[in-house]
């Protein structure tokens, strides 16, 4: 039932052209996903999804819309090829599910490998009743360290892309992007930038 709601909302997200509406539907989508996670016994994941999906990412999307535009334009090309591609890929994936274990079976291979060990020994070896935390921090510490490094890098990347320049001696506002590109050492991008400015000035002259 909840899954059906999810499908309906994602269809609405695809159809709607007002991006504010799309972002709001995205928040509802995340909350629905969180409730599905609770039903599927993943309380930690549900917690994260409710906090991240419905909270932070909605706010970030709204921030982006405030900085750009909130109307989506109708694309010029026909969506025939993407439709064919998605249908073929989807059909192949559905064919792949024929071999999948049935939903909720305890004998499925993913539930037989290391999971019973974690459930039996996790509490004994780490003294932490929440097995998810034990696996996250102890058994898969390397994994989590890597994930944290990814978050760190993404945060630094955002700061570099959007952060305000602290050095007031650098040239401000308009030529900022071009100067940054040439400082990056890529000749081609700065060339296209010049081309673009030429073409736009030509356009205004015409």
């Amino acid at each position: 039932m909840l899954l059906a709601f999810l499908a309906i909302i994602s269809l609405a997200i695809m159809r709607l052209r007002n991006l504010f509406g799309v972002v709001m539907l995205g928040g509802i989508y995340s909350l629905l996903m969180a409730s599905i996670f609770v039903i599927l016994d993943a309380v930690d994941v549900a917690f994260t999804e409710a906090a991240v999906g419905a909270g932070i990412s909605t706010i970030l999307m709204l921030g982006t819309l405030a900085l750009t535009t909130s109307r989506e334009k109708i694309p010029m090309h026909t969506p025939l090829l993407p439709l064919v591609v998605t249908f073929v890929t989807g059909a192949m994936l559905v064919y792949g599910t024929w071999d999948m274990p049935a939903f909720g079976s305890a004998e499925a291979p993913p539930n037989q490998h290391v999971a019973p060990y974690y459930l039996e020994q996790g509490m004994v070896e780490t003294g932490v009743p929440n097995i998810v935390t034990a696996v996250l921090a102890s058994y898969r510490g390397y994994d989590t360290l890597g994930e944290l490094a990814v978050i760190f890098t993404a945060g630094i990347g955002v700061l570099l892309l959007l952060g305000r320049r602290r050095d007031p001696a650098r040239v401000p506002a308009k030529s900022e992007f071009a100067s940054k590109n040439s400082a990056g050492g890529t000749e081609t991008t700065s060339a296209t930038e010049e081309n673009k400015s030429c073409s736009s000035s030509g356009g205004t002259a015409a």
Partner: peptide, 12 residues
């Protein structure tokens, strides 16, 4: 350690 939660959720 004892209930649902942890660093990721708390940070968010």
């Amino acid at each position: 350690d004892f209930g649902p939660g942890g660093g990721f959720q708390a940070g968010v």
